[in-house]
């Protein structure tokens, strides 16, 4: 099966690879995995007010999983938390032209965004308490 040009582009030049300080209260860390293949993905966001000012990811998995998370970090930068969690995996599928067997990679990226936002919100609640 051939990867689409967009997948290859993200795979060869992944955007926003790396880590943010997970102990910072401004940072939310999402970590998700695909039990079907053992892929694992970490996505972190840095938030000012309710806007995502930075995003980083680290994915150990196939090309489509790397491309999905790379694209996800590109998309969520500059978005509000609500806008970020509104992103659907189907949008990622469409943008990257993922074949049906790779749809779970896009689901992983969507879940990673939601997990990161949830972690950030939990941290904020902890601060108030």
């Amino acid at each position: 099966m051939a990867y689409s040009d967009k997948v290859l582009d993200h795979y060869n030049k992944p955007r926003n690879v790396g880590s943010l300080d997970k102990s910072s209260t401004k940072v939310g860390t999402g970590v998700v995995g695909a039990p079907e293949c053992g892929d694992v993905m970490k996505l972190q966001i840095e938030v000012e007010g309710d806007v995502i000012v930075d995003a980083k990811f680290k994915t150990f998995g196939c090309g489509s999983a790397i491309a999905s998370s790379s694209l996800a970090t590109e998309w969520i930068k500059g978005k509000t938390l609500d806008e970020a969690i509104a992103i659907q995996n189907t949008q990622i599928v469409e943008e990257l032209s993922l074949p049906p067997v790779k749809i779970h990679c896009s689901v992983l990226a969507e879940d990673a965004i939601k997990s990161a936002v949830a972690d950030f919100k939990t941290k904020q609640k902890g601060k108030e308490a």
Partner: peptide
């Protein structure tokens, strides 16, 4: 496997560290 996909966060962090 797909119906019970949620894994504890601590475990996934551990998998990240292994990698």
């Amino acid at each position: 496997d797909s119906e019970e996909r949620q894994m504890p966060r601590a475990f996934l962090m551990q998998v990240m560290e292994w990698n």
